[in-house]
């Protein structure tokens, strides 16, 4: 029975259907806020859904030099992983008894798979611009992964466990991580890492529309492109939720806490969108230096403060 229940979680709520819908709505928030910043009106709320349906109706093109199977299967693997990350995160928050000791690190690992799938797909396309994008995606991944791991460990260290359940219990009895010195610093670093994880400006280096013409996405069209867009929408939803869980008391659907959950999520999304709209794209070496320089120092300070008990 357990398996069936998990499958239900995974497919409907809080898994694929829920995550995809909310993720697409979040991309609408992104587009709407961006439009307002640009002094435009922006699209209606259903635009992301319409775009997805439209892409499904388009022809799928595969270049002759591509490894077609790998090229087409990669977005699907990314989708499965992104959905799994979301499911584990939500199920652990909503039904704490299902949490297991290592789930936060499982989520961290699984959140890297969509990026890896994208790299494999671009590499399989055989397009040199796609391959450049793939190389950048990988470099970006390990650039932000280091500070992200360290800030995650500030929380894990304070709680003394990798379990999301215990992280949430600790925060509900001792106040949220964000309330402490180390937590605040860690939160700031995590936001920048989230920006890079969602490959949003100023870290949209792997896609770089004006330079690589889409980079990792260049050869994709039709349904595979729709899946990629869906992936990105899901990640845009999962990554902020992960940050909320680690630093900001987590998510909940009990009475009034629905409202705070939505507010927290929208707050993080708005911060990310504002960063996106006020910064130009940086080069990959600048991004690397940013994450392995100031961000690394900040995250180490946060970790030291956490070890000292601040």
């Amino acid at each position: 029975m357990d398996a069936a229940r998990y499958l239900l979680y995974y497919l409907i709520f809080p898994g694929f259907l829920f995550t995809a819908v909310v993720g697409l709505l979040a991309t609408w928030v992104d587009r709407k806020v961006t439009a307002r910043v640009h002094w435009r009106v922006g699209p209606p709320w259903y635009q992301p859904f319409a775009d997805t349906v439209k892409l499904l109706g388009k022809e799928v093109i595969v270049p002759a030099g591509a490894k077609a199977t790998g090229f087409l299967i990669a977005p699907v693997i990314g989708l499965a992983a992104a959905t799994l990350a979301s499911t584990i995160l939500w199920v652990a928050s909503l039904y704490p008894e299902t949490s297991f000791v290592g789930d936060s690190i499982v989520v961290l690992y699984i959140m890297t798979i969509p990026a890896i799938a994208m790299i494999i797909g671009a590499s399989a396309s055989g397009n040199p611009l796609g391959i450049l994008g793939a190389a950048r995606e990988m470099k970006l991944l390990f650039a932000y992964e280091l500070p992200l791991v360290i800030v995650m460990l500030t929380t894990v260290y304070k709680v003394g466990s990798f379990s999301i359940e215990e992280i949430l219990n600790f925060q509900s009895s001792n106040g949220v991580m964000l309330g402490s010195f180390s937590g605040t610093i860690a939160f700031i670093v995590a936001i920048f890492c989230a920006q890079a994880k969602c490959t949003m400006l100023p870290f949209d280096i792997p896609e770089a529309e004006t330079e690589l013409a889409g980079g990792t996405h260049i050869e994709y069209s039709g349904a595979p492109l729709a899946v990629i867009k869906l992936n990105m929408a899901i990640m845009f939803f999962v990554v902020p939720i992960f940050i909320i869980t680690m630093f900001w008391g987590g998510v909940s659907f009990d009475g009034i806490r629905i409202l705070t959950t939505i507010l927290k999520f929208v707050a993080i999304v708005t911060i990310m969108v504002l960063i996106k709209n006020t910064n130009p794209r940086v080069r990959i070496d600048q991004a690397l230096r940013f994450f392995w320089g100031p961000m690394l120092v900040l995250s180490i300070i946060a970790l030291i403060l956490a070890v000292l008990g601040y």
């Binding site: 892409l55 093109i61 087409l72 260049i218 349904a223 729709a226």
Partner: peptide, 12 residues
């Protein structure tokens, strides 16, 4: 989608 009718193009 229309994935069953994949069009293979000359090159990238």
């Amino acid at each position: 989608g229309k994935t069953r009718r994949v069009r293979v193009v000359e090159d990238v």
